[in-house]
């Protein structure tokens, strides 16, 4: 096996274990991996964004003189981001920010009103209360028809308003609904994290389709890392 084949596998195993070493406690391996991650992530963003700007120029904006002027104007506006580092010209940074915020708000107003509001009301109104031949579905639909407005009202009325009149009962139904809903969402979040953990574990164990050489790298690096962590702990001056 050549070095060029083994090096990527050993590097990936090293960085995976360096991050997991945090479970032992804050240590130099973890800090090293953490800083490498921050560095490569920012470097990646720089490369990716510059590549996007270049691709846009080559494939689209350089096609005509008018488009080229518009592109250069956008870049000039983009340069104003850097005015934030100079107190005297900070106001120019606000102009660029205003373009981005304004466009973002405009796009949100176009979409949010329909997808997150009107479409949800329509979907809720279309639920049939009774489904013939399916009493369980009917009960579920009735429950959904009661629960959704209760949750919405619960978010709407805060403080003392929840504790008086019919809102008292609505708040109770809403709380039960929200807790059951959030419990499910939490369960799903746990599952996704575990799914990633299983993926990393399979990589370390060299299970197919991962390279089998990872297993040897895992055992070697894990032993070296564990020994160094115990040594680091023993040699570290104790705070009394």
């Amino acid at each position: 096996m050549s070095l060029m084949t083994l090096l990527p596998i050993w590097a990936a195993v090293f960085f995976t274990l360096a991050i997991y070493s945090f479970l032992y406690g804050e240590n130099p391996w973890f800090r090293f991996a953490e800083h490498v991650y921050a560095g490569v992530s920012v470097g990646y963003a720089v490369a990716f964004n510059l590549d996007y700007l270049r691709d846009q120029w080559v494939n689209r904006w350089s096609m005509s003189g008018g488009m080229a002027v518009l592109y250069l104007f956008a870049l000039a506006m983009g340069l104003l981001w850097y005015a934030r580092f100079n107190k005297k010209y900070f106001f120019l940074y606000r102009w660029t920010l205003a373009i981005v915020v304004g466009t973002g708000i405009g796009m949100a107003l176009r979409t949010v009103v329909f997808t997150q509001f009107l479409d949800q009301i329509i979907a809720q109104a279309r639920i049939p209360l009774f489904v013939s031949g399916d009493p369980l579905q009917s009960v579920s639909n009735i429950l959904l028809t009661i629960m959704t407005p209760c949750v919405l009202l619960y978010f709407w009325f805060t403080g003392g308003a929840r504790e008086t009149g019919p809102m008292k009962h609505i708040a109770k139904i809403a709380r039960y609904t929200i807790m059951a809903g959030f419990g499910a969402a939490y369960g799903y979040t746990v599952l996704t994290r575990f799914s990633l953990l299983i993926g990393r574990s399979q990589f370390l164990l060299g299970n197919p389709p991962n390279p089998p050489e990872a297993k040897m790298a895992f055992i070697t690096i894990a032993l070296v890392m564990l020994a160094s962590l115990i040594g680091y702990d023993l040699l570290k001056p104790k705070n009394i």
Binding site: V112, Q116, Q120, F155, T177, G181, F182, A184
Partner: peptide
């Protein structure tokens, strides 16, 4: 659970967030 309480919760949250937005 996903069809009933979770849908009701997420729909309520989504509509509340939309109104806020």
């Amino acid at each position: 659970i996903f069809d009933v309480p979770n849908t009701a919760t997420m729909r309520g949250v989504m509509m509340g967030a939309a109104l806020g937005a």
